[in-house]
Each structure stands twice: as C-alpha cells, then as structure tokens.
C-alpha cells in the first residue's frame, strides 16, 4: 500500500486481541515510564497490518491509550494517521498543540517549541500534553545521562535526530515543575520514556 494514498485503506487494522494486547502494551509503557531511559520492545505480531504512517510502537501506544477523551495533535507529516486515529480511537483531532493531551511528532525539523504544548496548571499538572516523538534511532545518537525518580543512580540513553536545542528547551521548563511535558520516544518496535521529573544531561 502506497504511503501517499489517503483513503479507506489507510485506516489499517487494530489489535488482533484488543484486551490482552492493550494490557501488554500498557505494561511496557508503564515499565518505560517508571524507568526513564529504559528501552522496551513491542512485539510486531500484535499489529498485523497498519499503515497509519507511524511506527509499531507509536501505533500500539495510540490504540492502548487514546479514545474520545484524549484530544490529539498530529504534525503536518501525518495525513494518513488522522483517519486511523478517528476510526480506531475515536479521538478528536485538534489544530493547536496546546489543546492536546497527546501529540505525535514525526518531522523533527517542524517540532513546535515545547512551551506551545499544554504543560498543565499548578492545581492540575496532569492535564498536560504527552509528546510521542518518532525518532530515527534509539540505539545510536547523542548519549544522554538521566537522573531522577525511577533511576537508581544514572541511566544512559542514545536518541538520534533530537537537537541540543530541544534538550535546552526542556531544561528551561524544568523549574516550572510540577508543570511539564512528558516525553515518549518511539522507533520501530522500541519505546523509551522521559517524564518531566528526569534530569537530562548531554
């Protein structure tokens, strides 16, 4: 199926075992979030055929966590994903990053400033955007040292395609905690999380 073709076929398939698959994917996302920097792998066979324009990890995350209560922002690079999100998750798609609960990024050059997303409020810091960023590499790339909750001393992660400016932006909003943006990086079947509490050093 051509990536340029936007039509009914772009909806693709969902989970083959919706209850068990969603539970398994959730536990891996939870494992990754509770251990920032840890790479978890989503088995490819739970998603027989999807052409949402997203990786296996990002697609299964969407099927696991999104529904009509989670407004989603998609970057301009993701036209075929919108049908998938609407059909499989029933999510409302929003035009403005700051109105989204989840945002999916595939074009790193067009990534909006972090402050354009919803960072929550002091009363309700959880009402914030979770950013799902598709990266070209989760094995090779600039090395990061991570510290904070979920990490015994320090953990190391290599993420390709993310600019130093991105990490500077993130460091700039860190003092606003409990406000913040939680990050999930996906690449193929792999997924890693960097929640707002993690201190990142390049």
């Amino acid at each position: 199926m051509s990536k340029d073709f936007v039509g009914f076929e772009s909806i693709g398939a969902g989970f083959s075992e919706p209850v068990a698959d969603a539970q398994m994917v959730f536990r891996r996302i939870l494992d990754a979030s509770a251990h920032p920097g840890r790479i978890v792998t989503i088995p490819a066979d739970i998603l027989p055929d999807s052409d949402a324009g997203l990786s296996c990890a990002a697609t299964t995350l969407a099927l696991t966590l999104l529904d009509l209560d989670t407004p989603v922002w998609l970057d301009a690079n993701l036209p075929q994903a919108s049908d998938f999100f609407r059909f499989h998750c029933g999510t409302p798609l929003v035009d403005s990053p700051c109105n989204s609960r989840f945002a999916f990024i595939t074009d790193l050059r067009q990534l909006p400033a972090l402050t354009e997303f919803d960072m929550g409020t002091p009363d309700f810091p959880e009402r914030s955007t979770t950013l799902v960023i598709e990266v070209p590499d989760l094995v090779d790339g600039p090395g990061l040292q991570l510290r904070g909750p979920g990490i015994r001393k320090v953990s190391y992660l290599r993420i390709g395609g993310i600019s130093a400016d991105f990490w500077r932006q993130r460091a700039d909003i860190a003092p606003l905690f409990p406000l913040g943006i939680d990050l999930i990086f996906t690449c193929g079947q792999r997924l890693a999380a960097i929640p707002r509490t993690t201190v990142v050093e390049i």
Binding site: A22, A34, T64, L65, E126, G180, T197
Partner: peptide, 15 residues
C-alpha cells in the same frame, strides 16, 4: 481501563 491507565502514567510522571 484506558482512563485509569492514563491516570497511572501521569501519577508516575508526577510522583
């Protein structure tokens, strides 16, 4: 479950 799972992930992100 999805609603609760999202709450759990935010709870982990904001200890």
């Amino acid at each position: 479950k999805r609603m609760i799972r999202r709450a759990i992930l935010k709870a982990v992100a904001i200890p």
